[in-house]
Every structure is written in C-alpha cells, then in structure tokens.
Amino acid sequence: MLLGQVAGKVWATKKAPHLTGQTFLTVAVGKDLLVCADCVGAGEGETVLVATGSAARVAAGDHVPVDAAIIGIIDP
C-alpha cells in the first residue's frame, strides 16, 4: 500500500464497459502520478491510502480492470 495526495480528477468520455460508473482520480505518490479508481469518495488535496495490483482489483470489485485504487482517506 502507498500513501499519496489526491491531485485531481480524470475524465474519460469512452471507457471499457466494466469501468462504467467508476470515478478516477490522479494521486501524487512521491514524484509519481497514479491514476486510481476511487472506492471511498476522496476529494482533491486529501491524503489517501492506495492499494495496487490484485489488491486494487479486489477493492474496486470483481472484473474491474484497475491497477491502483484509493481504499482509505487518512485523517489529518
């Protein structure tokens, strides 16, 4: 798992059918910027916990093709 800060929203006008209804956010993790499925309703500027790989797919739901998912919002 990784800690990061939500940098902004990602807009996709066309996407795979399994991603319909899924919200995506960019998350700054160190010097990297990840596109993450938002499973908890995070907002811009919040510090979040990010799961990657198969853990992200479990968090986002069965058959959802994601590599990173926001699974928690860290309290200040």
Rank of each mutant, 00 (worst) to 15 (best):
A60T: 05
G21M: 09
K9G: 00
A59V: 04
V66A: 03
G53K: 12
F24T: 09
V6W: 09
D75Q: 14
G61Q: 06
T20D: 12
G21P: 11
L3D: 11
C39T: 12
C36S: 03
A55E: 13
V48L: 03
E46T: 08
D32A: 15
G41R: 10
K31C: 00
Q22R: 14
L2M: 08
A60C: 07
G8I: 07
A68G: 05
A7L: 14
Q5N: 11
A42T: 08
A12G: 13
K14D: 03
G4L: 08
V66M: 01
V66Y: 02
A59I: 06
G43S: 11
G72L: 02
V29F: 02
S54H: 11
P65N: 09
M1T: 12
V58R: 15
W11D: 05
A28G: 01
S54F: 06
A59L: 03
L19D: 01
C39M: 13
G61T: 04
L49N: 07
K31S: 13
P17I: 00
T47V: 14
G45V: 10
V27A: 02
D32Q: 15
T52H: 03
K31M: 00
L19Q: 00
A59Y: 04
K31E: 14
S54V: 09
T52C: 11
A56K: 02
A16T: 03
C36Q: 09
A69T: 01
G43W: 01
T47K: 15
D38W: 05
G72T: 00
D62G: 07
T20W: 02
G41Q: 11
G41H: 11
L33P: 01
V58E: 14
E44T: 13
K14E: 05
V35S: 12
V10E: 05
F24E: 11
C39Y: 01
Q5G: 01
D67L: 10
G45Q: 07
L49A: 12
A7T: 13
A55F: 04
E44W: 00
A68Y: 03
G43C: 04
F24Q: 10
A42D: 05
D67P: 00
L49D: 01
T26W: 06
G21V: 12
R57C: 09
G53S: 09
L19E: 01
V58W: 10
K31H: 10
G8C: 08
T20H: 08
A69D: 06
A51E: 15
D62R: 15
T52L: 01
T23Y: 04
I70K: 07
L34A: 06
A42R: 05
T52V: 14
C39Q: 11
A37Q: 08
S54L: 02
G53V: 05
M1I: 09
A59E: 07
I71H: 00
G8T: 05
K15D: 03
D32I: 00
Q22W: 05
T23K: 12
C39E: 13
K31G: 07
A37V: 14
G53W: 07
I70C: 04
V66N: 02
I71E: 00
Q5S: 09
D75E: 15
Q22G: 04
L2S: 03
T20L: 07
I74S: 12
V35T: 15
T23S: 10
A59H: 10
G43Q: 10
E44C: 01
D38P: 01
V50D: 10
P76H: 13
D62I: 12
G8F: 08
T20A: 13
M1K: 10
G4S: 08
R57A: 08
